[in-house]
């Protein structure tokens, strides 16, 4: 039992190390200095207060996107639609942020609530179609991503601006930004969202592991027949799972809209945060605590990479290769497990 848990922790750690090593080889082969590259990466992520602030800011939506993917996955569903749910969440949050001016204690929660509701709606549709007509959620959520992207762009152009490319800035009463956090981190874009995302992680863990709702959701995810036999409403649970997953994703969008950017602009393509959430969830073992660690890694890689071209002449694309390699090694965890058991055998 505990031996198993240890392997579960060791596998992603090994995957990360392998990814970094193979990434170094790729740098060497393409004529870059891996040590300089990784030093720049590390410096760019944690080198001074400003970078740390930027990294934490990037970690925030990653945690929430990872939670969204993991929540659905733990209950037997594959939510590829986190990206779309995040986009509508972003849009809804900013909409509320620019439409009213209210006291902060009302305005900020209301904007976040709007984002959660939008994400929930975007999750509800594929959940409902799956429960009612057995349409596979992967297909529908991919479709919903495109609908989200273009609906959001259309609303920004025609409602939130006068045929412009971005909305107004949200009222300060809806903003997550904080003078205090900014001054602490040398005027980075760090905002209070990180606290929300950490609370969300605790909520996800509690909901899934400690409540009767979570018990039902997990039971349905593992075995629908037995859940039906035990008197659970299988269809209701499928919809609920997608809705809750969408709530996490929607709030991730609110982090961008109310914290990082304080507005919403027309997008040429997907933000990628929702898709990275899949990798975060995978690396984090679909566990709330693991997801926080994985999100820190991905956030650090993303932010640190910006420093690589100027400090070490290494193109940022190489970081994407390293990320891809890590995902590859996590996905092929079977291999790592094999190596680990071999090592253990010999150690005995």
């Amino acid at each position: 039992m505990s031996e198993n848990r240890l392997t579960n922790i060791l596998v992603p750690v090994f995957a990360v190390i392998l990814g970094i090593i193979v990434g170094a080889i790729v740098m060497l082969v393409s004529g870059y200095d891996p040590i300089a590259g990784y030093s720049a990466l590390l410096y760019g992520a944690f080198g001074d207060r400003y970078y740390i602030g930027e990294t934490i800011r990037q970690v925030t939506p990653y945690i929430l996107a990872g939670l969204a993917v993991a929540f659905a996955f733990r209950t037997g569903l594959f939510n590829i639609g986190v990206e779309g749910q995040l986009i509508v969440g972003w849009l809804a949050a900013v909409w509320v942020g620019v439409a009213f001016e209210l006291p902060k204690v009302i305005h900020l929660p209301l904007a976040i609530f709007a984002a959660a509701a939008a994400g929930a709606l975007w999750g509800f549709i594929p959940g409902f179609l799956k429960a009612r007509f057995r349409v596979h959620e992967v297909i529908v959520t991919i479709m919903m991503n495109y609908i989200a992207l273009y609906v959001s762009n259309a609303v920004i152009r025609s409602v939130l601006s006068d045929q412009g490319f971005k909305s107004e800035k949200i009222y300060p009463s809806a903003s997550l930004r904080s003078e205090f956090l900014q001054s602490l981190t040398d005027y980075s874009t760090l905002h209070y969202g990180i606290i929300i995302s950490l609370i969300a992680a605790v909520v996800m863990w509690f909901l899934l592991e400690k409540t009767t709702t979570g018990y039902e959701l997990r039971a349905v995810g593992f075995n629908q027949h037995a859940s039906h036999y035990a008197g659970m409403n299988v269809n209701r649970n499928i919809v609920l799972s997608m809705v809750i997953s969408g709530v996490f994703a929607g709030i991730a969008g609110a982090m961008e809209g109310l914290g990082t950017f304080e507005n919403v602009s027309v997008k040429a393509g997907f933000t990628g945060v929702g898709f990275d959430g899949i990798a975060v969830a995978l690396l984090g073992g679909n566990h709330a605590f693991g997801i926080i660690l994985a999100a820190i890694l991905f956030g650090a890689l993303k932010v640190g990479a910006l420093e690589m071209p100027s400090a070490a002449d290494v193109p940022t694309e190489l970081v994407d290769i390293v990320i891809a390699l890590i995902i590859f090694f996590v996905a092929s965890s079977y291999l790592i497990r094999l190596v680990l058991t071999r090592l253990k055998k010999e150690g005995k």
Partner: peptide, 26 residues
């Protein structure tokens, strides 16, 4: 519904224990 029936006092040892009887990963 199965739950209503269970609550009126029916117990059921199902024929297929892997399909209906247990959530194997619990």
């Amino acid at each position: 519904t199965p739950r209503q029936i269970t609550e009126t006092g029916v117990g059921h040892i199902p024929q297929d224990r892997h399909k209906h009887g247990l959530v194997l990963d619990f």
